[in-house]
Design a binder for these strands. Structure first.
Length: 613
RNA sequence: GCCUCAGUGGCUCAGGGGUAGAGCGAUGCCUUGGUAAGGCAUAGGCCGGGGGUUCAAAUCCCCCCUGAGGCUCCA
């Protein structure tokens, strides 16, 4: 429910004509004049229908609070549909508005309600003091009043443990050997102190010309420059290969959905206000915040039998949209538009889901190796699930090979009963939630997904949600944060398969450019991204610039190299100058990029021709 | 969304009611060179946007936008 509160000198209204949904009214309600009134313009929304009593209660509390503060004489409830683009049914609205009226009345407040469903003229004279114009969003969340303060009803709290080598211990009793794990636990338990610094990846993503803010879009939507786009493409190809090799089938589904579809609406409403919504002429649409919608619709329209299962449907959501709060959006870590690899695996039952989950743990772990990022892991389960499947939870945690934080939730709040979150730890010691695996026990039924079991019965399957890397943006975030950590004791780098310039060739004088081009062509033919710094600068400066671009290999070509023979190659990682033949360099790079995807350099080979972004 | 702080050339920043500044970068010229910044010159600014105060606003005040930190949140 949305309300707009106006403290007015007076409200004056007059009914003009009925709409189809008009309520019946007595003649004395056809017009009205209320002086010193707190006018409550109210739009009742779809989600309010799920818990009308709570909405009424919350709204009444809010109104009474403001009423008391501004010292108005009367509350005038004014139905005003234009505050929301997601309206409830007229019947529900009428009921809620009437209930608000009687509740306020019971509490001894002089309350009037302006008729619903009529075209009306009105005049309102706003007093204009600081509290005279307020808007509020009222939700179905239960609140209690305590010491005059509104407090969200405390839900029973989660319990936290550490699982390690088959043992379960309290978070206090565990002796933390690994720094990153300790940070993760402190963060999860809310005992980490903030340092107040800016995370380094934000500066890096701009400095390295990967991505930048786009002030002309909404907050949290980025522009990507060629180098950033290249890395995104490589990561996308990487995940595609990873999941298809394990049998998943890629699909592509729409980015927006019609809220008239019940299953879509219920699933969407769980996400509350954090959605982008748009109204077209006849439809109320939402932008997807994950691939679930499309995947579930594909699955519910497919014929599945127990022989097919488990089966995976994969999509890379370019983009998913979440209307995160302004203050929460930061760099690559938290965006309003992001790209999420999303794998949905249909399983016949919870046992098969657990087996499949085990496979996916292996897959998620592998991404940490391929990306060269350290993950710390949190396993979460509802109390009920944990009690029934203790052995499996222990063994799943054991697959991580190091301590795992375990959260046990007293009851199921979400669609999942068990999940595993993999987090990289940023420069400031805070987790970046990346891969995730979740066992979903709810969506199969909600979206009408069924399979035929061996007894020819139609059954709702268990579905596993998995993002093997987490969002592409967060992967890049983790890589940049890691480089900032590394900077303390070694040169910051990206994995060789991801860095835009793998080999930088520096000709000393113009007469060395031709030879540089020949070397570049040989490397290019071997699927290596190579470029030539042909600018009129000193060798020292070009070396410095190559370092600034994190080029892992730099070759200087001068008179000595004009003859056939070995090249001198600067190796960034070790800061060595090695004499090697081209073939040796090719072999070294191929070894380092083995089994990883390749894309060509999306920039002019010669630096003199490049646009500077 | 709330609280605090910030926005001056492409970048990093100085200035602080009365000619708009520096370094880096860019461009041009000189230098044709051997491993982390060669020299000289030039261009580039509605001082985030809009209102107000003032003879005069980049500077003071108000609103908005954008960014940072914190709070909250991340299904």
């Amino acid at each position: 429910m949305r309300i707009l509160l106006i403290h007015s000198d007076y409200l004056k209204y007059k009914t003009k004509s009925k709409t189809r949904i008009a309520e019946k009214i007595e003649d004395d309600k056809k017009e009205g004049l209320y002086e010193n009134a707190l006018v409550v313009f109210t739009a009742v929304e779809k989600e309010d229908e799920t818990d009308m009593d709570t909405v009424v209660e919350n709204a009444v509390n809010e109104i009474e609070d403001v009423f008391g503060k501004v010292g108005a004489k009367v509350v005038a409830i004014y139905p005003y549909a234009h505050l929301s683009s997601s309206l409830s049914s007229p019947d529900a609205a009428k009921k809620i508005l009437t209930n608000m009226e009687s509740k306020l009345d019971e509490n001894g407040i002089n309350v009037k309600r302006v008729p619903f469903g009529w075209y009306k003229s009105f005049e309102v004279s706003c007093k204009g003091h600081p509290l005279s114009e307020l808007s509020r969003t009222i939700t179905t969340e239960k609140v209690v009043i305590e010491d005059n303060k509104v407090v969200v009803t405390p839900v029973a709290e989660s319990e936290f443990y550490i699982l390690h080598e088959g043992e379960i211990v309290g978070t206090d009793e565990f002796s933390y050997a690994e720094d990153d794990f300790k940070k993760l636990v402190e963060y999860e338990l809310g005992i980490m102190k903030s340092s107040g610094e800016e995370p380094p990846h934000v500066k890096l993503m701009r400095e390295k010309k990967l991505a930048d803010y786009e002030p002309s879009a909404d907050i949290g939507h980025l522009r990507w420059y060629p180098k950033g786009r290249l890395i995104r493409d490589l990561l996308s190809a990487y995940v595609y290969n990873l999941v298809t090799e394990r049998g998943a089938m890629p699909v592509e589904t729409p980015i927006m959905y019609d809220l008239a579809d019940d299953a879509i609406r219920v699933h969407a409403e769980k996400f509350g206000e954090r959605q982008y919504r748009m109204a077209t002429k006849n439809k109320e649409l939402m932008l997807r915040y994950a691939c679930c919608f499309g995947a579930f619709r594909v699955l519910s329209d497919s014929f599945l039998t127990w022989k097919n299962l488990p089966v995976g449907i994969y999509e890379l959501s370019t983009y998913s949209f979440r209307l995160e709060k302004k203050g929460e959006v930061v760099g690559l870590k938290r965006l309003r538009g992001f790209t999420m690899p999303d794998l949905h695996t249909v399983c016949v039952d919870i046992d098969q889901a657990m087996d499949e989950f085990d496979e996916q743990i292996t897959m998620c772990k592998q991404t940490g190796v391929d990306l060269d990022v350290n993950y710390e892991v949190i396993m979460r389960a509802t109390k009920e699930f944990f009690d029934e499947n203790k052995d499996w939870v222990y063994s799943a945690a054991n697959k991580i090979g190091k301590p795992v934080l375990l959260e046990i939730l007293p009851e199921r709040k979400h669609y999942w009963v068990a999940k595993m979150d993999f987090a990289a730890i940023d420069y400031l010691g805070r987790p970046i939630e990346n891969p995730t695996i979740q066992i979903d026990v709810e969506s199969g039924e909600r979206f009408g997904i069924t399979f035929i079991n061996s007894e020819e019965e139609e059954i709702n399957p268990i579905i596993i949600h998995c993002s093997p890397t987490g969002s592409i943006e967060r992967v890049i975030c983790s890589l940049l944060e890691k480089s900032a950590v590394d900077k303390k004791d070694k040169p910051p780098m990206l994995p060789v398969w991801l860095i835009p310039t793998q080999v930088r060739i520096i000709p000393i004088a113009e007469r060395h450019i031709e030879k540089s081009e020949q070397v570049a062509q040989l490397l290019k033919n071997q699927n290596i991204r190579v470029d030539i710094d042909d600018r009129h600068e000193t060798v020292g400066k070009k070396i410095r610039n190559a370092g600034g671009e994190w080029a892992p290999y730099v070759i200087v070509i001068g008179d000595r190299e004009l003859e056939e023979g070995p090249l001198t190659v600067n190796i960034r990682e070790t800061n060595e100058k090695l004499s090697m033949k081209i073939d040796e360099l090719v072999l070294k790079i191929h070894n380092e990029t083995k089994d990883m995807p390749f894309r060509k350099l999306p920039l002019p080979v010669k630096l003199a021709n490049r646009v500077s972004f």
